[in-house]
Structure formats: structure tokens, C-alpha cells
Nucleic acid binder design. Structure first.
Lengths: 246, 246
DNA sequence: CAGTGGTCTAGACCACCTT
DNA sequence: AGGTGGTCTAGACCACTGA
């Protein structure tokens, strides 16, 4: 592991342990240089990590202030229902409604940002948390990922996990979040009344090189999840859009 | 402006202009060093900006790939309904339902992360977009910000803007997003039916030093907004929580 | 194997904050 | 005025990618 990541981890641990309580200040860069025996650049890389995660606040000329300990977030937990469920102490499962190869329609092609007619796989599942219907998932898989999918066990495990094991890495995702009313079909699948609120999360995921891998439309029962986002002046990935543009 | 920001801006402009189309590769760090006549560290600071915004993807050993042009996002647009509305070409306004000073109840203190009994201001407004009710906003303002608020014009402008003008800077925010059904009151205020879906966005905003400034509960008509979030393996501020923990 | 990005060093000057 | 973070330079070595 890189030295700056080790230092960042040590500082995180010190914050969690209470050595640097919320509201207190971190040692100066000079102090940390002396303590860890590294160059200033390395210390700055370490604290930049903490700043990016919203753990500390930085102002030129003043010591860094501790905002809170790092959230237990992870890109992969956000990406995968299974991993998230497990991390929350729940047992995830799935009921497959549809899994079929096909060719991209005009609309699907636009969402996946591929040419119309491209081969893809359409997957629809009801996702369960401890046996209770929680989310309806409609996913389109593109390219290589699509082919691998047809050989997988879709009811139990995490597709993401199986894809990662085979070297297909998800690197970027763009999520659109809104509220909607349950239609007849969704209501029945989730065991709620028609018209009840659902939280909809649509997502385009791409590889490290920007190649679209999947597009997903996930609809959660109103009481099933809350999404949280942190942003700050320096790190900001959050937008509010009019539906017309979304 | 710092040199690395100038370089980042130039690269952004070049991407938008089509000089570096989506999917193409950026010049190597060495090329950029030569072109701009700066040290490699400066070039790396510039491209790190682009990476953080999801504009380019980086892999060790390979040229950087262009993912897309920068979104027109801004921290302040996310923070302020007014600024966002204007940027979307709409006319924002507000109807003040309540604006009164008070002392923090047990529950309010916990949300704002201040001691119970702290002075605060409670503000409730219906926010309108081009005259149409769009969102119900319930905000608690703490400390210094609270005092300033009572002297402001609350119907027209942006509170955030007025506060910024007086040197009170919002620096960090944590948002919780979920779906809910409209109650009798919210339904009437927004002109929708009781039970209709609303998108709820709760937010704690703090100063650069981590001091809580405001807590807000915003409820949008189901068709009024979509929230979008970008995340990646390297930059991730997104979490999915069980409601019990939220 | 050459090119490229990832990490690290050592030192410099400046802008801003605190006292 | 002294301390602190922000920026920048110049050079080094390593790990990974791709032809």
C-alpha cells in the first residue's frame, strides 16, 4: 500500500479512536512530516484523501478541522444490492422475472450510449431483503458483460461480484434519483398499493475507459432505503435537474 | 487564478469544443508539461481536477480517456433553490408560511448537532417555479446565521446568496434522499392529492470549520426534480442506508 | 521494451489566518 | 510577525500498459 494511504488510514483511525475529536484540529503538515518521516507532498496526499471523504475541512492558513469520522461507504456497496444488503446485516435474494438476450432498441441504445441494434441482455428481477420484496430491478447489460451473464446464477449472488472476479471492473456510475407512483405491475411485485410512492434510481455504469456496461432502473419501496450524499465546495458530484433534462 | 486551474479549464474547453471527443485520449503528462511549460506536478493537479469531476478516466500506465464534458454542476446550485431555478431558466419565488425565532428542542438539537436550548430560527416556505408550487421547505437556522435571517427579504431572493455576501460561507453538506407520501398539509400546499409521491431531501449544512449552520427538510412534487449523482471508484460520496439508520 | 501514470523527495515562494 | 496551507519546480524510481 502507498505510504500516503497508510498515513491517511492512521489518521482516520486516530479520529475514530477519539484522539482527534470532532471539532478539534489536526496536527500541521510540518508536524506530520516530522512524525512520519516523509516529504510534505506525501502528507498532503494523505490529508487530501481525508478532505475528499469529508472527514476534515481545510482552509488556507488555518489548521485542518475534524468534521467527523469517515462513513462506511464504498463504491461497490452502492453498485450492488447484494453487497449493500450483506453490509447492513440482511440476507439478499432475487426472483428472476426475465432474462433474455436481444438487440438494443432506439431508446435502449440511447440510454446505454451504444449504437441501436447492439446485442444486449435484458434482466428483470425482484430483489428481496430477508425474504421481503424490496426493489424491482430492470437492467440492460451491454457487450462482453452481456455474454457472461447468461451463464450465471442470477437468483443468489451478486452479479457485480461475479463480473469483478472475471476481470470486468465497474469504475464510474451516474445515478438519477426521483420519486414516482407505483404502477399496477410494480405494486403487485413489491406488495404495495397502486399509486404508493417509490424511490426510483436509474444508473449508467461504465468501465474505467468509459465504455458503457449496464443501465439499470431500480424501484424501491418507499420505506426501504434512504440515499445519502455528501458534497462540499471542493468535491461535488451532485446535481438537481428538471425532469425534462434528466 | 492558479496555473493548474487555468490548465484544467483549457482542457475542459478543448473537450467541449470537440478537440478531444468522448472516448479519445488526452495528451500524456509529458506532452502537457512541454505545451504549458510547467512542472509535471502542476499538470497532474490539473488533470486530477478533471478526474474528480468525472470528465476523464485514469488508469496507471495508459493514457487518460475522455468520458464526457463537465456537468454544469455547482455546490451552490445544489444548496440554493433560487440559484438552481435561475440556472434552469425558471423564475423562483417563495411564500413564507412561518418565520420565528425559538430555542432548539431535543429533536431539533440532534438534527443540527447543537446543544438543546440553542437559539435558532424556524422558517417554512412554499417555493414556486414560474408561479407553480414546487417544493415545501422547512429549515432551521443556527447561531449567527439565525440572527441575520430575521432582517432579510425572504420572499424574493436567495438566502444563501445574501448570507454569502455577508461572509457566511456554506462549505459542506450532507443530503438524505427518500420518497414519501404527501400528507394532508403538504398535499394542500403543493396542490397535489394526499398520498401522492414526494421526493424528500433532508440536508445538514456546515461552515468550512464544520459548524452546523442549517438543517433543511425539502419536499418536492414528484414531477418537479431529478437528483443526479456521479460516483467512481476514486471519488465516492454516495451511500444507500436503511431508514432505521438514516 | 518504451511509454505512461503513480508515488515520493527536497526545496521554494506566496496568501491567508491567528495572535 | 510567525505559523499554516496553497502552489510550483525539478528530478527520481517504480508499476503497469500496450505494441
Amino acid at each position: 500500500m502507498a505510504r500516503y494511504l497508510e498515513i491517511a488510514a492512521e489518521l482516520r483511525a486516530a479520529i475514530i479512536s477519539g484522539e482527534y475529536p470532532i471539532g478539534s484540529v489536526l496536527p500541521s503538515e510540518g508536524d506530520l512530516v516530522a512524525r512520519y518521516g516523509v516529504a510534505r507532498g506525501t502528507v498532503r496526499q494523505a490529508v487530501a484523501q481525508l478532505e475528499q471523504d469529508g472527514v476534515v475541512a481545510t482552509r488556507q492558513g488555518a489548521r485542518r478541522v475534524v468534521l467527523g469520522s469517515a462513513p462506511t461507504q464504498s463504491f461497490h456497496e452502492m453498485q450492488s444490492f447484494s453487497m449493500w444488503a450483506v453490509s447492513q446485516g440482511h440476507v439478499p435474494s432475487a426472483r428472476v422475472l426475465k432474462c433474455e438476450p436481444g438487440k438494443a432498441t432506439e431508446q435502449e441504445a440511447a440510454m446505454l450510449r451504444v449504437p441501436p441494434g447492439e446485442p444486449l441482455v435484458r434482466l428483470e428481477r425482484v430483489r428481496l431483503l430477508d425474504g421481503r420484496p424490496t426493489m424491482v430491478e430492470r437492467t440492460l447489460y451491454a457487450g462482453v458483460v452481456a455474454e457472461l451473464l447468461l451463464a450465471m446464477d442470477l437468483t443468489s449472488g451478486s452479479i457485480t461480484e461475479q463480473l469483478t472476479a472475471q476481470g470486468h471492473v465497474y469504475a464510474h456510475a451516474e445515478h438519477s434519483i426521483d420519486a414516482m407512483a407505483a404502477g399496477v405491475l410494480d405494486a403487485e411485485l413489491l406488495g404495495v398499493r397502486r399509486g404508493n410512492p417509490l424511490l426510483r434510481l436509474r444508473r449508467l455504469t461504465t468501465s474505467p475507459t468509459g465504455v458503457p456496461l449496464e443501465w439499470s432502473d431500480d424501484r424501491y419501496r418507499q420505506d426501504a432505503v434512504t440515499i445519502t450524499v455528501r458534497n462540499s465546495m471542493s468535491v461535488n458530484t451532485l446535481m438537481r435537474l428538471s425532469p425534462a433534462l434528466a
